[in-house]
Design a protein around this nucleic acid. Structure first.
Lengths: 190, 190, 190, 190
DNA sequence: GATGAATGAGTGTTCATTCAT
DNA sequence: CATGAATGAACACTCATTCAT
């Protein structure tokens, strides 16, 4: 028998990301994704249960990759600001090197499919980071406020600044990224 | 000669917002919107050129309303932090009083229709605010950084904290809103 | 506005019956039925909720027509054998004049859609006939046996003899029909 | 060299009958039958030319089995009514013991595949029975009418009474079966 | 012999839009 | 102005069958 073709599966992944970025989530039909990947629409159903499965799997794959990149060489022993800055930089690094993947996750997060995701599944990868922030609060380095508020200033600004749909005028280079971290740190530090 | 029926147009507006919030952008078909508004699908084409026109017009109407609410009683003579805090509070106020409208704009911003919007058209309403920030920079009260960076810390945190999809754990009351502004101000102030 | 076209609905009815008779229930797709009726597949959904509705409605329409034809001029005052013979002849008459309709009902009855039919809805038209048979049992003219058994000899033979798929060799004329009734009557009479 | 696996073929037969009875003819796809039989869809094409061949072969196998069961110990020397009653009882016996097989044939007979069957191929097994009836006619024990008419009263009532879709209210026990034969015999006897 | 991968053709259904009234 | 009828194109998905191993 023929064997499942990794090349085909990878092409499907790339096609999904590319098409969603080009024409948006709502317009990305199974047939169009198949054509982009140069396979038959029916073949998609060999690799995925249905469209939802294809999109959700693609999302999770990217999220896993992102979290691995960001948490790589994580060193809880460093000073807290250094840790946060390291994560901040790694995240910008990943996003700018993989802007297509990142854009896909942004679109996904605002689609109805988003509700199907177990958020904790994704968050668990960042557990060490969360503990660092917790420690920062205890050591009175970081403001003692609701965690969602801290996240709104420590994480989402990265996403917003990296989203070309939202920020068309800014050039993301080492300097601006560093500058932005300055604001983030000022926001949360005590 | 009969004239276009304002009641019908308003019903159409409400139906569009309601349906998009309930079943999402992709699933909101013309026929369903029409049924929700208790009119015929064909009648929509009396009021709007096509579906895109309907959605874009709905979006712009909300954005105009939001900017009017936020910029109401704008007083450039006040101290800069007071101005920003006032805007911050008014924005939260509008969003919490009109969460349906706000949710619609969030969904819209992540749809392909979003590209059709002339962002400057919306931004011009905030011109006085932009000038205040400019003045803050000149007076060395606000950090002299790219404008997009300032916005990422002054405006988007509001949207993120108000988005129930993103922040499920936080209760938005006077206290948390004030706290959040504290972080925003710390981020941008010199 | 345009008005619902009775001609189109009738064409749809005829096309459904014709196609099911020609290629069978399982192969009769919505697209094929539409092509046979010379309308767009989408138009079917103007007249019927879905495929099931189309088929079930077609079935019920035929059944109603059949029962009306069979029970026409029903006279409970006549002698019981005369009543039964009259019904027997009228049924053959309807079936031979409308063999296409009848074939459709036979196919329908053996399809999964059949389970959706409320049998009592159809049976109620034959209520007067059922009462006659009941009376025949009480008057000891007809055998006092389970009603299903009587039906198996009084009604189904008509269907079998009229079914060209099952009986290819017999010519259904006045004589053979009369002969067959003789057997039916001998079967059930006391 | 490996040989065709009888166990697999039998599993395929059972799976086909089971699935058709459970979900109907139209919904029984090759893939589903294969899954039910715990083999690959492709393997079916080792044993059968195509889907049609699978279904037709299954039908013929059952029919052969039925005729063997019914004609077992056939004794043309017995009195004619005894012969017919014996066949009648054996048929009910087979059907009630193998209701799954019987249901399959009923579904098959109303599918388009039915036209592919050479009816004479099946009928030839009943040749001795046909000759008995012929003899009964000659001896003026049985009515001298068209053979299809006799069959409509001697054979089909069994099928109708055994079809749970048609007769839901009757309990088929020794008594009702005997009673029903009484009607059948009254119908055809002179 | 046996199989999972692969697919073109098809399934029932909904779509945004136009037409006739 | 207002509408339900009408539709070609598209939708997600399944089909029977063949291919490569």
């Amino acid at each position: 028998m023929r064997v499942k073709d990794d090349v085909k599966q990878e092409a499907l992944f790339q096609a999904t990301v590319k098409l969603v970025n080009e024409i948006g989530f709502a317009s990305s039909s199974v047939a169009k994704i198949a054509r982009q990947a140069n396979i038959s629409p029916a073949t998609i159903y060999v690799y995925y249960k249905n469209k939802e499965d294809l999109l959700v799997s693609t999302y999770i794959q990217i999220k896993r990759q992102l979290s691995a990149a960001v948490m790589q060489d994580f060193d809880a022993a460093l000073p807290i600001p250094d840790i946060l800055k390291d994560v901040w930089l790694k995240m910008f690094d990943y996003i700018s090197s993989n802007s297509g993947y990142f854009q896909f996750t942004e679109q996904f997060a605002n689609s109805p499919y988003s509700d199907l995701i177990d958020k904790q599944e994704v968050e668990k990868y960042f557990e060490p980071l969360i503990q660092v922030i917790q420690r920062g609060i205890e050591q009175k380095i970081i403001k003692d406020v609701n965690f969602d508020i801290l996240t709104a200033f420590m994480v989402y600004p990265i996403m917003i600044l990296s989203n070309p749909r939202l920020c068309q005028h800014i050039e993301l280079n080492a300097e601006t990224i560093e500058t932005a971290f300055g604001l983030a740190w000022d926001a949360i530090k005590r």
